[in-house]
Computed example of a mutant assay.
Amino acid sequence: MTLTRQRLIFLAALGSALLLGGAFVFQGLGYAPCKMCIWQRYPHAAAIALGALAFFVPLPILIALGAIAALITAGIGGYHMGVEQGWWEGPTSCSAGAIDNIDPDALFDQIMAAPLIRCDEIPWQLFGLSMAGWNMVISLALAGLWIAALKVRPTSE
Rank of each mutant, 00 (worst) to 15 (best):
L116V: 07
P104F: 04
Q6W: 09
H44W: 06
G97F: 11
A67M: 08
I147C: 08
L19F: 07
S130K: 00
E121Q: 08
L59Q: 15
M81T: 14
A23Q: 14
A74F: 00
S156N: 10
K151D: 13
I138T: 04
A113R: 02
H80L: 06
G30M: 04
A96Y: 06
N101L: 09
C34M: 10
I72Y: 12
I72W: 13
A96G: 10
L14E: 11
A70P: 03
D103F: 04
I76S: 08
R41P: 15
P115G: 02
Y79E: 13
G97T: 03
G75W: 01
R5Y: 05
L142A: 05
G144C: 06
Q6Y: 09
A45D: 02
V137N: 07
G90P: 14
M1R: 07
D120P: 00
A49L: 06
C37L: 07
L53A: 13
L107V: 08
L116N: 04
T73R: 07
F26E: 04
I38R: 08
L8T: 05
N101H: 06
I102C: 05
F108I: 10
W146G: 06
A113L: 03
L50I: 03
I147F: 13
R153H: 11
L3H: 14
L145V: 00
G66H: 00
E121P: 14
A132G: 01
W39G: 12
I147L: 07
V137E: 15
L19Q: 15
A45H: 00
L8E: 05
M136D: 13
G133D: 02
P154A: 00
G75H: 01
A148R: 03
H80D: 14
R7G: 14
I99L: 12
T4R: 15
G144F: 05
A46C: 05
V25F: 09
A67D: 14
Q125H: 08
D100Q: 14
A49N: 05
T155F: 09
A12K: 10
W87H: 12
Q6H: 10
N101A: 08
A143Y: 05
T73A: 04
S93P: 05
L129S: 06
G90E: 09
T155Q: 09
A106H: 10
I9E: 01
L129W: 06
L11T: 12
G97Y: 07
